[in-house]
Design a protein around this nucleic acid. Structure first.
Lengths: 201, 201
DNA sequence: ACAATAGTTGACCGACCGGTAAAATGCAAG
DNA sequence: CTTGCATTTTACCGGTCGGTCAACTATTGT
């Protein structure tokens, strides 16, 4: 691996944990550089601005999810509605392990950033929206397949998928306000009770 | 009204709109003072720290809600499940009017602050948690009454109330990521489909 | 009338903010 | 061995951050 690439990835790695555990505005570039063992001038060799770092951080988190929990949860081999259960479980165990290590429930980085920056930076907002849109279609695919297999009654799968994603984000938000991942365990399974009917019905 | 009280309330008023439309960390005390027509030294006569200003802002927003939309929505004269519809409607129209005036969906100040500060400031987190807890019990009361009247089947009203609150916050979060209050209109009504059964059943 | 108190002013603090510029390196191709 | 580019280092920029302080002015109770 290239040395340059390594420096860049150390910067992103340091930024990931800090943006996740605190916030975007509260973490300075100097602090990130110190932790990554990198000089500030070097930082600006790889990133034109702090926002570009945030974009890279979002990308890496999205990749982590897509190749980790989400890939396992939305495994086509699983019965479709079980995938949703699996995802809730994954979110629960992830937040729980973070709290065990870090002492705090950090919540969802995408949700955190959305509420912090989306009124101030349309580029970051667009990036986060794209992440949510992709997640929404994961839910939709599962719902469509469940309907096709007769596991659940027909419904507006796209809107219901969006509702489920919203519910997940909301539960994580509330859990963060309580600093208690157990709320995910208690409230999570109810995600499957959400239903939005088809327009015609 | 006292002059001093007026200065204080001008500070809080300026802070309210700014914290809501941007974020806590991104709004400086100097800016708030400039907008309120107050000297910084005067600010620190009324507030020991920025955090104490945030506490006052949260209190005022909570009062606004409690005496405005929420009071109307959770009117005991209304059929219980209609109160929940009413609250969703109120949230929708509120966000919509903010966007019309401000050009942006600002979302829920409590949710915004929760995700931004709750890992960094336990006092603010506790304050926000208290707001959410109060809101939760509004939902619970409506659900309990609906069950008592036979409008809905028995359920775990406290957990379902929490799920509903989470859903509302999640929908607002997603709507903010899209800068589009209409999402509240499309997803909001599904809040009544959420159900968490009683432990025994 | 006077003292005490509440409120206001404006200058100031060290620390940090995101970002820049230029010189110094490491390194690889010709 | 040299040229050229990528990377790194170091010092620096103006501006802002939250917060402090002492002096000053109103207001209020006695």
């Amino acid at each position: 691996m290239n040395i340059a690439t390594d420096t860049r990835s150390r910067i992103v790695a340091a930024a990931k944990t800090r943006f996740h555990s605190r916030s975007y505005a509260n973490v300075g570039i100097q602090e990130i550089c110190d932790n990554a063992g990198v000089q500030k001038g070097s930082f600006y060799h790889f990133f034109p601005s702090k926002r570009d770092l945030a974009l890279a951080v979002i990308d890496e988190f999205a990749d982590d999810w897509a190749n980790g929990f989400v890939a396992e949860a939305f495994d086509p081999a699983l019965p479709p509605m079980e995938r949703i259960d699996y995802l809730i479980d994954a979110a629960y165990f992830w937040q729980k392990s973070i709290k065990e290590v870090h002492g705090r429930m950090l919540g969802c980085i995408f949700g955190n950033l959305t509420l912090e920056v989306s009124t101030q930076d349309d580029i970051l907002r667009a990036k986060l929206l794209a992440i949510f849109t992709r997640a929404k279609f994961r839910f939709k695919d599962a719902l469509d397949q469940a309907v096709a297999e007769g596991g659940i009654a027909p419904l507006d799968s796209l809107l219901t998928a969006e509702a489920m994603l919203a519910y997940l984000e909301g539960v994580i938000l509330l859990a963060k306000s309580q600093n208690d991942p157990e709320l995910l365990y208690r409230l999570g399974p109810a995600i499957k009770t959400l239903r939005i009917e088809l327009p015609g019905t």
